[in-house]
Design a protein around this nucleic acid. Sequence first.
DNA 1: CTTGATTTCTACAACGTTGTAAGCAACGTT
DNA 2: AACGTTGCTTACAACGTTGTAGAAATCAAG
Lengths: 335, 335
Amino acid sequence: MRHRLKDVAERAGVSVKTVSNVVNGYVHVKPDTRARVEEAIAELNYRPNLSARNLRKGRTGVIALAVPELDIPYFAELARHVVTAAAELGWTVLIDQTGGGREQERVVASGITEHLIDGLIFSPLALTAGDLAGLDGTPMVLLGERVDHGPYDHVGIDNVAAAREITAHLIGLGRRRIAAIGSQRTPEGASARLRLAGYAAAHADAGLDFDEALVAPAPAWHRAEGAVAMRSLLSLPVRPDAVFCFNDTLALGALRALHEAGLRVPDDVAVAGFDDIEDGRYSVPTLSTVAPDKERIARLAVELLANRIDGDRTAPPRELPAPYHLELRESTQGP
Amino acid sequence: MRHRLKDVAERAGVSVKTVSNVVNGYVHVKPDTRARVEEAIAELNYRPNLSARNLRKGRTGVIALAVPELDIPYFAELARHVVTAAAELGWTVLIDQTGGGREQERVVASGITEHLIDGLIFSPLALTAGDLAGLDGTPMVLLGERVDHGPYDHVGIDNVAAAREITAHLIGLGRRRIAAIGSQRTPEGASARLRLAGYAAAHADAGLDFDEALVAPAPAWHRAEGAVAMRSLLSLPVRPDAVFCFNDTLALGALRALHEAGLRVPDDVAVAGFDDIEDGRYSVPTLSTVAPDKERIARLAVELLANRIDGDRTAPPRELPAPYHLELRESTQGP
DNA sequence: CTTGATTTCTACAACGTTGTAAGCAACGTT
DNA sequence: AACGTTGCTTACAACGTTGTAGAAATCAAG
């Protein structure tokens, strides 16, 4: 049932290497030899054994994408784009789910890394530059917040600027008590820190006070936490008139809590998110958000990785900014 | 930087095979030999070359999960569970995105199948039993609707019964003009056919007429299509007082369209979905739905596949039903 | 025809691993 | 002292592929 080059070679009456040459599109093969070999390949339904090829070539043709959680829509959408972009370059993508913990991420970074894949696109939450330091030269591209990422290429949007812009948008609507949901004090919370910094910067730009009481923490950025945080903000003596959530799932949870509290969005409280996930286009109301260009991020990451794998592995790390824009919808603008 | 068994062997002063034995946990190795070898492994940061191991063993330790689209939340959630269940058995999961087209699915089924993976968990949309017929014995487990799946194991819930139950729930609320969204006339639409059959059966059970005009098609079951279908149903001479959407994303689109039309859910129109995705717990209103036990489905699929890989490949195909239940929320019950 | 260049093909060795078979100690039993 | 048994280790060959080097066939030009 399973055939090898040798079987094809015997059937076509040529050497094993000639079959290999045909399979790999080597030019100097006589047309009728090629035809005979191709016929034999078809008859036997031959397919190359990738393990053997990889062993010989030192390449696997597989790259991995490691993300914290697949059922966070942002990562699922990103994964789709990475798979598409990689396929165009002939790579298969192995998707790995780290869970987001530091230890798990370290295991992925050091373990998967070896021999099974040619390179890794990594979107870490918890990992620090130090954790990545000891790895032996597997090409790797980092996604996400701009932190200190050591010798690795990086693709990401300017989190501070984006957060600043969308906060400025809320201020521009005349809102003055703007809450933030999603702050994190842990070392994992690099994104949170940057987005909070943008939020603070926008306040400073407008001459508004930064009110610590309006900043609600959320350890994991899920819908449930957004709802909980929103409820606690609503119990403040003076309730906020807008809220900037550090991602869209938090914002969807906040919308839910506002609905339960009988408040109108955006009339009573305007809501903005971050990530531009599909859900936000169909929520009630639709969600204003920062829209990173995911397709572009995926493409850049794959290309950077391809360059590392095929090219100079010792070149200095590159830092590619990805574009984003504000997607303003009902949750701040009204119907 | 990259070391082989041989390097470790030289450093520890033993043979290559002894190192291999240590790595693989073979029992008959003297404690101090083992210690020397382990020390050498640690010093060199040795990791086995999986391609070579696979070539030798004929196993790769990788299974694939092929789903139509990763950013359909149902599949993302399913993927997470499959990854978790597979990890417990020591397998890595390669996630493949087929796009759902018949030709693409055929490529995945026949291509990926060879040599790179030990087995495949496949959730096909378009593929027919005929397409799967010619494959050479790679262990495969099918997920999804119960159709004719040839010689392959299958895990899935009873779509007809589930659709019948949730439709009966709508009828039980006193609704009499119950629309359906998501019918498909194409051969791909196996799920659609089964869910429509359940919808029709519930009507028959209750002595209600089946009204063709209340059945709206949706080729791809995305939010946008749910919204479009809902709008067209609302333009009927007598508008429906309930709608059963064949999955949750359609239902979320329908909720959106109802909101835009100024109708109240469930007061004016009750809405039910299918899949129990996370979004439905936080939508406004929260979504009543059929909740398949995804964790169980994933676990059963992985176990079936493991049995095929390690065990008898010629055993008759098994058909495992997965549990489900109704998750009744605001969109049919009110706040 | 001879020569040299080019095209076409082949034999061989390697990639890093593990199964097999067999060797060598060390031990207890007769 | 000879024997088998058991524990531990090793040499060798294979898994299926491709790079290298070179042989054989073909061709162009003198």
